[in-house]
Amino acid sequence: MIHMRTKEKAIEILMMACSFLTVLTTLGIILVLLIDSIKFFSEVSIVDFFTDTQWTPLFSEKHFGILPLLTGTLLTTFIAVLVAVPLGLTIAIYLNEYASPKFTNIVKPILEVLAAVPTVVYGFFALQFVTPLLQQFIPDLRGFNALSPGLVMGVMIIPYITSLSEDALRAVPSSLREASYGMGATKFQTAFKVLVPAASSGIMVSIILAISRALGETMIVAIAAGQEPRLTFNPKESVETITTYIVQVSMGDVPQDSLEYRTIFAAGLTLFLFTFILNNISFWIRKKFQNKYE
């Protein structure tokens, strides 16, 4: 009996340790990023980091301004969100309110495939198909540009927005829907005046998570957006994102423990902070509005 109780306890502790590993992972990420970032900022002023308009750590004349990488990241993310939010939301409303259940059941799993395609494949598609296609209409579009990977990334994150928004729309009690129809409202009026406001927290969460996903996307932009850090909001230009820079340095032969090496930690920390804040906002919204209709 005692033996059994010890075994039970031992297993429980083992399981606790496994769960705790996820906490260690988070701590590990924060510590790893912080330690080398602190070393980095002992050599580079944090004011320069956020105000210098050039990022040239790998050149002989070094500048450490994160702004060009940040604008590159924000520009591609902005384009992606511009595609994904209207499309994703409209598709969610269409599938939930207009389409027949049969159509929805067939289309939804196929849409999910968009999120399952490896990102290196999207990178290839952006560089080898979308960019040449766009160049037919925009002659001065560069071979590497922000537009094409931004658009492709937008299509990739459509399922994130559609599936989470759909869940939120479905959670709206049918009494609200019926009340609206009873007043003589059309499906469109019901969707935008009743359902979308009622499901707004879930829709917000889906948009925030999609933004966070786009900010951290690496391979699409690494392949199709280029590797030139440039402070611009012109989508026709080639840009470099934070993620691309991290990969670029990792693949090069920068000596370990050098200032150049530490730039990836400072850049990584900047990216991590953005996504961390967004994820926490979405988690907070979800918790706060979770039981709205229960």
């Binding site: 996820t22 906490v23 590990g28 990420i29 951290g216 990792s250 990584g268 926490n280």
Partner: peptide, 28 residues
């Protein structure tokens, strides 16, 4: 409380860009 804390933590981890896991793996 431990489980609740871990739940928040996992939701967060799921949103960490994969390239950041690369930096973690490289260092650790």
């Amino acid at each position: 409380k431990f489980a609740k804390f871990i739940e928040i933590n996992i939701a967060n981890l799921a949103g960490v860009p994969s390239v950041i896991y690369g930096i973690l793996g490289l260092t650790i």
